[in-house]
Design a binder for these strands. Structure first.
Lengths: 195, 195
DNA sequence: TGATGTAAATTCACTTGCGAGTATACTTAT
DNA sequence: ATAAGTATACTCGCAAGTGAATTTACATCA
């Protein structure tokens, strides 16, 4: 009983992303994804040629969602950089509190496929991170921070590192530590403190 | 033809670690590990009860090695914090230049087993990272940095984040960016820059 | 309006291969 | 002789991917 042409795809993509993010790529089977999406495995293969193709589509779709959200996110940056940083890291605290949180799906996949640098999913993850960093730069520029490009990169590294540490230790206090560091970095800019 | 009693174990551990770090846990088979170690799969199961047990032993053994190295590493910190930071991030540049580099094996495993927080290997990875952070604190204290505990944590987050970004983008310039940020963080300490 | 052909969409049941783990026999040091 | 250690040759289950039939939406035509 075929449903409306392209109503199934989004359902599959959403179910697959949920599973991939939580348990990784290799430990999730197509059967399981099919069940979660309420379809048969064969239907999966009707919509996606292979597991790799599904992964690639999932990441692409998730990038659309996430990146759009992040752009809206930065619209009302009435406060300065400190307000932005607080908002970012408070958001991370909230996100990482979710019961089965397992970090960024993009980061997770990049690491899981660390040795497969040519994999299309890797390319998407890379582009996603690059765009997010760029968007962060735009936000910092909007907050009148000098050298926003350099500061954005530093902030991004802090955020990624924080997510890893929360994942490893299950300790969200890394958020406040990183937020504090980030604020100081934005304030200080890149002036070598003379000897 | 049995070799000297416990000569085989280290060989297996080394071969397994190499493979686990490069390709992750789930994509490496016991057969493959056996071949790499120059033994049969059955021999693996003689020395280790299961793949999980092998993983746990591998991480434990690798922690011994790495942590000892890192302790010696900090012995001759003649220079101040800046010298230490340069040394750390230059080391990271060198390490990440290796042909098949795939980041820290501990981080990789923690992420790959993100949903299995009870897994013994996760515990070892966690302890390892905690000890490394502690050792960093000791080094910073030796370099007369104020609040070494807080600074060590910030530095650690930067390092982890840098490794992730290098892995994602294949771009080592994150090292210099992070090193610069780290130096400023150590210099500035945690003084809120008043408005 | 209503029959009907057609292609999109879905299902059930299957093959196939790989990988974890094992039963059992063999080898060598002491 | 005996026990630690290694090898050969298996079982077994799971997961990726497929073949062929089946169901429904919808356009077209009498």
């Amino acid at each position: 009983m075929p449903r409306a042409s392209d109503a199934t795809r989004p359902v599959i993509l959403q179910a697959a992303y949920k599973l991939f993010r939580r348990r990784g790529f290799f430990r999730v089977g197509m059967e399981e994804i099919a069940e979660a999406a309420g379809v048969t495995k064969r239907t999966l293969y009707y919509h996606f040629d292979s597991k790799d193709a599904l992964l690639t589509a999932v990441l692409a779709s998730q990038h659309e969602r996430t990146f759009a959200d992040f752009q809206n996110y930065g619209i009302e940056l009435s406060g300065g950089a400190d307000a932005l940083i607080d908002k970012l890291f408070e958001g991370l605290v909230k996100w990482s509190s979710k019961p089965r949180w397992a970090g960024s799906g993009f980061t997770r996949l990049a690491i899981e496929l660390a040795d497969l640098s040519g994999h299309p999913a890797r390319l998407i993850a890379r582009q996603h991170k690059a765009l997010m960093e760029k968007q962060l730069e735009t936000m910092l520029a909007g907050a009148r921070i000098p050298s926003p490009k350099e500061r954005a990169r530093e902030l991004f590294v802090l955020i990624e590192g924080t997510m890893v540490m929360i994942l490893i230790h299950g300790d969200q206090s890394y958020c406040t530590a990183a937020a504090d560091a980030a604020k100081r970095l934005m304030a200080v800019g890149s002036s070598r403190s003379g000897p």
